[in-house]
């Protein structure tokens, strides 16, 4: 079973790398945010899967924190857009 979890883990890592690539090089600033958002979701899943892979389920606490907190970052971004007109 660890084999399956390890494979899942590596696959999520690859998806994270793709989201990172989008955030590093994006046509518009919104695409960057989209990449960051995707990276955040995948981070939560990655932490959960790694916790199961290494048999340390207390990692789930950190996954919950990320799921809750990364939303605040997104809301802050929106608030920032309301204040300032986006420059392209």
């Amino acid at each position: 079973m660890t084999g399956v979890l390890t494979a899942t883990c590596i696959a999520i890592l690859v998806v994270m790398a793709m989201a990172l690539a989008r955030a590093l090089k994006a046509p518009t600033v919104y695409d960057r945010i989209l990449g960051v958002n995707m990276f955040g979701t995948k981070t939560v899943l990655f932490i959960a899967v790694v916790g199961y892979m290494t048999g340390r389920p207390d990692f789930l606490d950190i996954a919950i924190v990320y799921a809750l907190i990364s939303f605040i970052g997104m809301v802050a971004v929106l608030r920032f857009f309301e204040y300032t007109a986006p420059i392209e």
Binding site: A11, I12, V15, M18, M38, L45
Partner: peptide, 13 residues
Amino acid sequence: GVFFSFTGAIGLF
């Protein structure tokens, strides 16, 4: 789950 995540990441590009 991994498959759908992949398709999403490809869709990003």
